[in-house]
């Protein structure tokens, strides 16, 4: 089209040949409606997302902890274990028969079940799919777990135990 694309021209052309002007207008309207629609969708969608995501975001903030103190945990008898919470996740503190202390996350690396310490076999066992970990190092020994359990640093003081990220 060599003619300038003015509204007058567009109107003049319409009956004969409605291609360029009305196609452009249609594209513009479509873009505008799409943009407004996207605006509404995000104005409704974002608050709903934030509303539903609040606990997950809080938990993520809680997971940022680097250490936790367990008062009275130093009384744990040798040859036994206890569960505790490290941030939002369960963790395992083991007092071995030889007097050493070990702490590690209790979330199985296979599918996220909580593992347990089995004193007679001196192993860490996951009841869900039979995963076995070494009770001293957390290394995955047998069964489906693909990775070892993450170890924590343990500091035994008089009256409490401080667990921190290794």
């Amino acid at each position: 089209m060599s003619e300038p694309n003015t509204p007058e021209n567009a109107r003049k052309m319409e009956p004969v040949e409605e291609q360029p002007a009305s196609a452009a207008r249609r594209a513009f309207v479509r873009l505008g409606v799409g943009a407004v629609g996207a605006g509404y969708a995000s104005a409704i969608g974002y608050p709903i997302y934030a509303y539903l995501a609040t606990p997950a975001q809080r938990a993520a903030a809680a997971a940022a902890v680097t250490q936790t103190q367990l008062d009275g945990a130093d009384k744990l008898p040798a040859g036994s274990a206890m569960m505790f919470r490290f941030g939002p996740k369960p963790a395992l503190l083991i007092h071995h028969a030889d007097g050493t202390w070990v702490a590690m996350t209790a979330v199985c690396t296979h599918l996220g079940c909580t593992v347990q310490y089995e004193a007679p076999e001196n192993r860490i066992f996951c009841a869900c799919h039979g995963g076995v970990y070494d009770a001293r190092t957390g290394a995955n020994v047998s069964g489906p777990p693909p990775k070892p359990l993450t170890q924590f640093r343990v500091e035994v003081t008089d009256g409490s135990i401080v667990i921190s990220r290794a």
Binding site: P47, I48, A50, Y51, A53, T54, Q57
Partner: peptide, 9 residues
């Protein structure tokens, strides 16, 4: 007062 945008919902 606590959950984000809960007041709006």
């Amino acid at each position: 007062y606590d959950i984000r945008f809960g007041w709006l919902i």
